[in-house]
Computed example of a mutant assay.
Amino acid sequence: MDFPFGQTVTRERRKLIDNPYDPTSPTQGSWDDPDTITVYDAFVASSSSAAVPSATRTQVVTQKSLYCPPATDIVDGDRVKSGSHTYTVDAVPEADVSPFTGWAPPMEVPLVEVSG
């Protein structure tokens, strides 16, 4: 995979911390000090936006897709920063591999951003 004009994004993941209620099962920490990796040769593609009004506010839900190398360490619940936007990975990313050739296309990672 090669995007001649690809971009660089940052993947954030909350660190695991000790669970005071069950020491054998760690829990996720805060977003204040996440583990980060830089993802090169990526592409954030537009998908859709929808305004969700209620009696007290209006939310805008924007869905996008991140295309990145198939071996990228991204899982459901991670955050992806691209420019001034911060997206949440809202589904399990899949990296398919051809059973005939071993070729792997770019991995598509579903993203969502909620504002308002």
Rank of each mutant, 00 (worst) to 15 (best):
A51M: 09
P110L: 13
T62S: 15
R57F: 07
S54P: 01
Y67I: 07
V75P: 01
P99T: 02
S82G: 07
T58L: 05
G77Y: 10
Y67T: 06
P53H: 05
G102H: 00
W103V: 12
L66T: 03
V80K: 04
H85V: 07
P70A: 06
R79G: 05
I74W: 11
R57K: 15
S48L: 08
L66V: 04
A50C: 07
C68S: 10
E108C: 07
P110N: 07
A50Q: 15
A50W: 04
I74L: 13
T62A: 13
D90L: 07
V75T: 11
V52Y: 09
V97A: 07
C68K: 10
Q59A: 14
K64F: 10
P105W: 00
P53N: 06
P110T: 08
V61H: 11
I74Q: 09
P53Q: 06
V109C: 09
Y87A: 06
S82L: 09
P70N: 04
I74M: 13
D73H: 07
R57M: 12
D78T: 03
S54I: 05
P106V: 01
A50T: 14
V89R: 05
A71G: 02
T58G: 02
V97H: 02
L66H: 02
V109D: 06
W103Y: 14
E108Y: 00
P106I: 01
V92D: 03
A51R: 15
V97I: 09
Y87N: 05
V92G: 02
E108V: 13
V92S: 06
G77E: 13
S54G: 05
D76Q: 13
S98L: 01
L66N: 02
M107W: 08
H85K: 15
M107K: 11
Q63S: 14
A95V: 12
S84P: 02
S49V: 06
S82E: 13
Y87T: 06
V80C: 04
R57E: 11
R79Q: 12
G102F: 00
T56D: 14
E94K: 12
V61L: 12
T56G: 08
A104E: 08
E108P: 00
C68N: 10
S65L: 08
V75F: 10
A71I: 00
D76K: 12
S54D: 04
V60Q: 09
G102K: 00
S65E: 05
S54Y: 01
G102C: 00
R79F: 05
K81C: 12
A95P: 11
W103E: 15
A55G: 14
V89C: 08
P106D: 02
S49R: 12
D78V: 01
S98E: 00
P70V: 05
I74Y: 10
Q59V: 14
S54K: 04
A104T: 06
K81L: 12
Y67G: 03
G77D: 12
K81I: 14
Y87C: 04
S84M: 05
P93Y: 03
T58M: 04
D78W: 03
L66F: 04
D96Y: 05
Q59T: 15
V61R: 13
T88L: 15
K64L: 08
S48Y: 09
A50P: 02
I74V: 15
E94C: 10
Q63Y: 11
S65K: 03
S48V: 09
D73T: 10
A50D: 11
E94I: 14
T56E: 14
R79E: 09
T56C: 09
P110K: 06
H85T: 09
P106L: 00
P69C: 10
R57G: 04
P70C: 06
T72E: 02
